[in-house]
Design a protein around this nucleic acid. Structure first.
Length: 202
DNA sequence: AGCACGATTAACT
DNA sequence: GTTAATCGTGCTC
């Protein structure tokens, strides 16, 4: 069944780890595209401000046009446009009024591999969804999904529940691509992945 | 109104 | 290892 609001309405780091092993599903033209989440990153915990997070970097930590959804209700999609080319998919977490979100960085393809390969220019299965902008392309997620309700029973994008992983199967380390974000946030180990999974991003 | 830059990727040398 | 692609957003003037 589709994960519901209470699952998402928890601190970003908790949700980030719990999302590993769940399945991100997209319905397009009557076809299901799906992949198991194998890598995530947490941004902005309520208890400690996170300078790497868009919600804290811009406008002194107050909502802006782009970051408004992050400050909203958990279980909605925050889709962000980067480098003039790529869309990155996040899930809003925590309480309303806080800029908490989890970036989905990699999937293991499960359903609709041919369709994914078609929109990914015929790339090999190994390179279909092993990066944050690759998976949005494969699942055809763009700005029209910014603010989408992932808990809507009739929605075309949602996350399917699955048994939790053993803690020992979860690896963690610093987040990727933070650029000039100052310490200590630059080195905070808020990136999580499924140990040994070949679809974790490079 | 203008400008610098980014939670990346792919194609180079 | 290096770099072009490419544009919305937020900040400064």
């Amino acid at each position: 069944m589709r994960l519901q609001r209470p699952f998402f309405a928890r601190p970003a780091r908790v949700v980030a780890q719990d999302l590993l092993g769940k399945r991100l599903v997209r319905l397009v033209n009557g076809r299901l595209l799906a992949g198991t989440i194998v890598e995530t990153e947490a941004y902005c915990d309520s208890d400690q401000p996170d300078l790497a997070c868009h919600g804290h970097r811009a406008n002194g930590g107050k909502p802006t046009g782009r970051t408004a959804v992050m400050f909203g209700t958990a279980g909605f999609a925050y889709v962000y446009f980067s480098y003039g080319i790529h869309w990155l998919f996040n899930v809003v977490t925590g309480e309303p009024g806080q800029a908490n979100a989890v970036l989905v960085r990699a999937l293991e393809p499960v359903l609709g591999l041919e369709e994914m390969q078609r929109v990914r220019n015929g790339r090999s299965v190994a390179q279909l969804t092993n990066g944050p902008a690759k998976l949005t392309q494969a699942l055809q997620i763009d700005k029209s999904f910014n603010g989408a309700n992932l808990c809507d029973p009739h929605g075309v994008l949602w996350i399917e529940d699955a048994p939790p992983l053993l803690p020992a199967a979860i690896g963690c380390g610093p987040r990727i691509g933070l650029g000039k974000t100052p310490e200590p946030w630059f080195s905070m180990p808020w990136r999580y992945w499924v140990c040994g999974n070949p679809f974790v991003s490079v």
